[in-house]
Structures are given as C-alpha cells and as structure tokens.
Design a binder for these strands. Structure first.
Lengths: 345, 345
DNA sequence: GCCATTACAGAAAACGCTTGCATGGAAACC
DNA sequence: GGTTTCCATGCAAGCGTTTTCTGTAATGGC
C-alpha cells in the first residue's frame, strides 16, 4: 500500500539508487536532481521503509533500554534522559520492561538480539550477568548498573551512594540519634545489598547501632508492612533508613496509621528523590540520585563504547547527595507511646 | 557476525525454507525435522533477524503508543496496560513521546509510518487530527482520545467523565458548598476543554457557581501558580476542582504555603487518581480514570479494528468514578483568614 | 585539443527472511 | 495395482533498501 522508492524514482525520472542517495544526503548529487526527487517524495508523501533499510544497512538505529517497572517513577526520568539523548543523535530506543517477570526476561534478551540493537542499557538488577556475555558476543554494547568487570563492549555506570549515605548518616547522628533501623530493598537485588552494606558499615562507623536490618520490595505497601514488623518489636528505633522513596512513603503511611509522629517520634530517610518525595507529608528527607543524568550518561556511555576502536568499556560514576526536608528531626526524648497495633490491621 | 538462517539450514541439513517454517510453527513439518532444526538453532544460538522478517512479511509486529510525557504517572499505567496486552498477543510496542515538543510530533508520525506499525494508540491531545488521516491512508489503524468521527481504521476511546464529575459535584454540594473554582488543564487541550465545560455546566445545574474558571498546565507548579492567582482575588472559593491530580497537588501545596487549611478552609478535588494521590496529605479526593484498563482497551480496540474485514472503527467508553478521601470537607463557616500572600512568593 | 580528474547517475548485487509453487513419496481409496 | 489424497520439503521469487562498481559528461591543466 505505501509507496516505494521505485515509484518515487519513476516519478522523478531517476534511478532508485539516486533517490536513496538524496534521502541519505550523500554527496555528488546535483541540486536539480535533489529538487526533482524531493518534489516526488512530497507529492507521494513517501516515507522510507525502515525494515528494508535496516536490512540493507546491516545494523539498526536502535538502542535498547531495559527497566523492571514502568510505573516506578524512578525509571521514568531515566527513560526520558536516555530517550532524549538517543533522539538527539538520530537513534531510536526500544523500551523493554521485565515487570519482574522471569519469563519476560528471556523474551527481552531475545528481542534485543532480534532487533539487532547497537547497544543496550540494563537499568535493572533483575537480569542475570550471563545475559551480558550473550549480548556482547553478538557485538551489542552493554552498560549496566551491575558491578561486573568492565570488558570489551561492556561499561558500567555505578551510582555512588557513599557520599549521600555519609551525609545522611552524619545528618541523623547530628540530630542525636543512636539507633537506626534499615529497610533495604529486595534481598535478591544487587544494588539493594550494596546500599544495605554501606549503610550498616557507615552507621557502625559513626557509632550508631543498625538494628533491625530488614528487607522489602520496592513498593509502598511493602514498605508499610516492613515498618509494622519493626514496630511490633518493643523498643522502636528512632530513625528508619529506607532503601527507596517508595518504601519510605509506605513507612510513613504505616507510622501515621499507628499514631506515631514523623519526624518527632521517628525520623525517616529515603533514597532516590523521586518527584513525589516533596509532595508527601512530611516531605521526605532523601538521598538524591540524578536520574535524568543517569539516562543521558548511559546513552553517552554506549555511544562512546561503540565508537571506540578497541571497544573497551569504562566505568562511569554518578554522585548522590542528601536533600533534607521534613521527615527527619532530633531524636525523641521520651519513650514511644503508640496506638495498639492490631495484628490484622 | 550473527548467524543466518542459511547456516542453520546447512547445519540441520535442510533448506532455509524449512528452517523458516519450523521457526514460525507452520504446520506440516515432521517431528524429526523440527528436532534437527531446533538443535541447530540451539547450537548456533541463532535468532531471527526481525528486519529481514518484517521486510518479507510486509508488515511489522509493531504497534505504536503515543503519549506526551513519560514522567507523568498518568501515562505509566496506560503504557503498562497497553504493553501487556500487546506482548500477550506477540506484538511489540513502539513508545513515542512528544514531550509537548512540536518538532517531535512530526518525527513521531514519521517514525510510525517508517516502522510500518499496524496500529497506533494516540493517548495525547497534542497531535493534530490531520495526522489521523495521514496514518489511515497508509493502512494504519488508529485509536484516539480525540473526539473525531469514527471511520474506517479509526476507533475512539472516550473517557466518560460525566459519571465521576456528577458524583463529585453531588459530593461537594452535599457538603454545603455554593461556589467552586475550577482549574482546568491547558486551554489548547481537547480533553481539558471537555472536562471544563462539563464541570461548568454540571455545577450550574446543581446550583453551584463556577467561579473563577482558569487554566493551567498539567504540572504541580503550574497548579500552585494557578491557585495563587485565585487566592489573590478576594473572597476565595470554598472548593477547587482541578483538571488533574498533579494540578491538585500543586494547589494543595500553594494553599498550605498560604496557611490555608485543606480541607477545612478549602476543599480540593482532582482527576485521574494517580498512584500518589493517596500519599499526599490530605489524601486526594479525586475522580478515578481506570488507566490500566485504558491501555488494554486501546490495544484490544486496535486489534479488533484490524481484524475486521470492513475495518470500520467503533467507539469505546471507559467509565470514571469518584473516590472520596480527605481533601474535601464541609463548606467553611467563617471568612477565610489567610497569611499575606507576598506577590513574589 | 587531449588526457586526467571530478561530478553525477544508473545497473545490479546484496541484506536475511517468507511463501507460493512444485515435487516426491507415503498413505489411502476403490 | 493404479489413482487419488495428503504430508513434508525444496526452489526461487520476491520484500524495499543500500552500495559497489561502472559509465558518461563536464571541467581543467597543459
């Protein structure tokens, strides 16, 4: 149904080869020809068929972006940054989300290869390291959060939580807190483990007692559940570090529910600084990770990786920083008097 | 670099045609052959090249999804629903977001055509109606929010705000409110106008006075600005209807800033029921639009549209409903005493 | 005025896959 | 046993581009 290059060629009275050259702006074509061809293109409202194009070219103008959850605001800005960077350079992005579904991850890898993407940014830890080599073997560049060794065609981009974490610990320490609970992300998640460890070490080092240390999914209700567990033990901590803002929001919700005042009874600190963290009440004190930058850097990393002759990857680092809002306050002076927590609530 | 069907064929000692048949599960192939071919595929870790495939097939297994803003939570669930529906049926989705950028909208249409998508769901009003015919002319199915006439290859899916709006108006009326401000979405936005009109009419009909009626972008800070404008007039309304939850959140923020209590001084009602609307304080009373369903229905609509012989579109409707939370309360009994609003604040 | 460039355009061979047509053999019918 | 039917596979012609190679006309240096 759509027109083909041949028709354009016929209409412009040139060969298809010429049309192709005009359209790809190759040199050595006379102004007249360009004009004739363009007129024909306009007239027929012709658009090149990318499939044929990609087949002929041998590679696609596609980059993959793998995330785990489209509805998590953490990813949206990554997507935006990545997409913007890609579009700027004339590339398209194939967005793949696993939704934490095992079966999907296979499909995702398959799609990446089938589409002969040039490179892929894996922004989730829910993909095994083994897929990385599967991809690089096919000549596909990879940039990932995972702490894998930098290699041919693989770059890493690590979020340096150290700084933000240190600032946060310092912040709560200076508020007089002595004991801090931590609700890390899922146990299976690499990033979550790293953060947890850094947190525990950092707290100890600063003379705070990390207790209890638990895990939770990256969801609001999971955060709420985790807090309920913490509260059911007697002697609640005075501050809770949460592995993500979503968890923190769940925590605040559960605390509110239990009649516990945030931040006066218990302080909360989150991680990510998603756009909504300043909208909840109390506004969240959290560790900002620059997600737009993350997306852009990821793409830039891929771009560079593929341009290099030896294609040896590099290690990129983005920094984090504490942003103090209203969910942290000085350690409470009195024992916590909370509403009875009904087991079924 | 990657292997081709020919190599697989050679290894399995069959013709490429047979390999193709095995891979596309066409009937009439012996179990033995299937086995041999699959073994070869495994061994070479072979993946079909979609570009060649799409070229040969003549159509792609792609559906387009056009949105305006990836970071707006309103869209994330639409994306998820659409993508899930598409994947289930073995299709891929090409996600295009305009970011409200004029130049991008052209590129978007171009990409849709180039990729020979089978159908596209246009989930933004920022694309002109004219592009619809551009698309259908190429045989691409379209489903859109825009109130265009149903036609060959075009279905509409309209969000019926009526019900939710009526419930909301009834709700605030029963709380004793007499005058309601409305902050609608952008003036250029079709959906926004429709909602605004419905709101104004509905309020009048119920004996409420819609005043003032203003516009705002779909962003938190735009909502805040709009509220400041409303406040600067004397005699503030007792309830504000906002064109989206994001606007409502901005409104709450600005009100809080001005020392005005929500909901006791001023009630707020939003639209959308985005996932965060129950996290802000006070939790938002809002009109839920079922976004997951919207995504799924959009895809289903496209699928059906393309299967039909006559390809005549249909009109789908999804319903809305009020969800009452904490941002609405009875009309205030006393004059509003607000902190001075500094012009520059 | 001739040869070497250079600027431009066409012919045709890929690119990797699908599929209609053809074919050969096995099974089934009478 | 011969004819018909059905299953399984191969051949080869596309699908719509790009690109190499070749050819021709114009340009310029001598």
């Amino acid at each position: 149904m759509p027109h083909t290059m041949n028709e354009v060629a016929k209409l412009a009275k040139v060969s298809p080869a010429t049309v192709s050259r005009v359209l790809s702006k190759s040199p050595y074509i006379s102004a007249k020809t360009v004009e004739r061809v363009m007129a024909a293109v306009e007239k027929l409202n012709y658009h090149r068929n990318v499939h044929a194009r990609r087949l002929a070219i041998g590679k696609s103008d596609l980059f993959g972006l793998v995330i785990s959850e489209i509805t998590n605001p953490f990813f949206s800005e990554i997507i935006r940054g990545f997409q913007a960077a890609a579009w700027d350079r004339g590339f398209d992005v194939l967005l793949l989300n696993t939704e934490y579904d095992e079966r999907r991850t296979d499909a995702v890898v398959q799609k990446l290869i089938e589409n002969s993407v040039r490179g892929v940014a894996i922004m989730t830890s829910s993909l095994l390291d083994s897929v990385i080599s599967t991809l690089t073997e096919k000549g596909i560049g990879v940039v990932t959060f995972n702490p894998v060794p930098v290699d041919r065609l693989v770059s890493t981009i690590t979020i340096d939580y150290k700084r933000g974490l240190t600032q946060a610990i310092e912040h709560v320490a200076s508020l007089g807190h002595r004991r801090a609970a931590v609700i890390a992300g899922p146990q299976t998640n690499r990033t979550a483990s790293i953060i947890k460890q850094a947190l525990v070490d950092g707290l100890r080092q600063r003379g705070l007692d990390p207790d209890p240390v638990t895990h939770s999914d990256y969801h609001v209700d999971a955060g709420a559940t985790a807090v309920q567990a913490i509260l059911s033990a007697k002697d609640a901590p005075t501050v809770i570090f949460c592995g993500s803002d979503l968890i923190a929001m769940g925590a605040i919700l559960a605390l509110e529910e239990a009649g516990i005042d945030v931040p006066n009874d218990v302080s909360i600190v989150g991680i990510d600084d998603i756009p909504f963290s300043f909208l909840v009440r109390p506004a969240l004190t959290t560790i900002r990770v620059p997600r737009d930058e993350l997306g852009e850097t990821s793409f830039a990393a891929l771009d560079k990786l593929l341009k290099l002759k030896r294609q040896r990857g590099a290690e990129y680092v983005v920094d984090t920083e504490l942003v103090i809002r209203k969910s942290t306050a000085p350690e409470r002076k009195f024992a916590l008097r909370q509403k009875a927590v009904r087991p079924g609530a």
